Amino acid sequence: MIDSYRALVLVDDIAFRALKISLVEPERSTILNRLRDDWSTDVGVIGVLRQEQLRSGSAVDAAYLYWSSRREPTSPRIESLLASFLINLASSLTYDLLKDLIAQNYDLSKLLDVRGVTPAIVGAFTSDIPLLIAHVKTFIGLHRMKFDLNQAAELERQVARVIEKREAPVPGVDAEQVVDLLMKNLVPAVKGIVKEELERKGVFLADNTNGVLTRGLPASPGYGFGVPIRWTNDLITQPRERYVLLISDKDVQPANDVLPLMEGASAVVSWFGYMTSHVAVTCRGIGRPAVIVTPQLADMLGRKNFLVVSGTEGEIRSYHSRPE
């Protein structure tokens, strides 16, 4: 479990940034300040609580440890516990996303190396998102009680149940809605931050908005599909399977006899081109659908298992296998 804690800590920068744009008030200001003031990677209250929660899998055990060690009436007990579960949740979501991207053959080395994370660490990490969400709901409820003066007495009773009877407190009535909203914000926030980090390092992720992988310039009308084959100087004979040819417009020149490969392709995807470029004119002449995309998307498209290209709409879709 300590290994899981150490793994979580390595992506806490991503988790913290995601929480900054996902939390709502009154939790946002309070919890972000608590994470800044009461947490560090190896020592500090929140670090200790995270280890205890991972060790026991229990919100109650972590709460009991903290409450039994804090005697000051004004100590930020609820905030520290909630901050611990929130950073765990955001970091776990980050690892789940990294696992998915590695499974899709994305090269994450530039993102992982600077954080001391390896693909083996990512693959070995296991998270229990439903349990973390349950813990967050409990302490969101208590935190909301703390801000409601009419519930001060009820808050004391709930806390007493943890200290005296070691029972999990009952979350406040609005905890479900608050956490549902948090998750709607947090999941895309983690994805957006990871995508942004990767793009700065030259790795571009697929965008499956409305089922479309990406959009480009509709250079030649028609519809084609197949496995993506990227042109290189070593590609001489046509592949036996139905394919989509990926080729830069700069490679379409007399020195490179690419016309047979273009004629044999179901569709063509190119970059560094426009409507009157070599690829566009050639594809219209031989009746092959073609879409022109930005150079940054070439590697991402080449990693897909199957592409569907609409040269009429300028849309490219991706499937794990041939669509029925």
Rank of each mutant, 00 (worst) to 15 (best):
R28E: 08
Q238N: 05
R215I: 07
T74M: 08
G285C: 04
V227R: 08
E27K: 09
V45I: 11
T126N: 11
L23E: 01
S29E: 12
R240Q: 13
P228F: 10
R6K: 13
R144C: 02
P188W: 08
V24K: 10
V11E: 00
L246M: 09
R215Q: 13
G314F: 02
A90W: 00
E156H: 13
V117N: 04
A290E: 03
V11T: 10
S127A: 15
M262Y: 09
L132M: 12
G47D: 07
F85K: 05
D12E: 15
S68Q: 14
S69T: 15
S127W: 01
G141T: 00
T214M: 10
A189K: 09
G226K: 00
I78N: 02
Y319E: 13
P171T: 06
I236M: 12
A120D: 14
I14P: 00
N305L: 06
D3V: 14
P130W: 05
N105T: 11
A298R: 12
Y66D: 10
L131T: 15
T282V: 14
V114F: 03
D257R: 15
A206I: 08
L32W: 03
E176N: 14
N33T: 13
D174E: 11
N185D: 08
K250S: 14
L98D: 06
I229C: 02
L89T: 06
K20Q: 15
E197K: 02
S80K: 12
M145T: 00
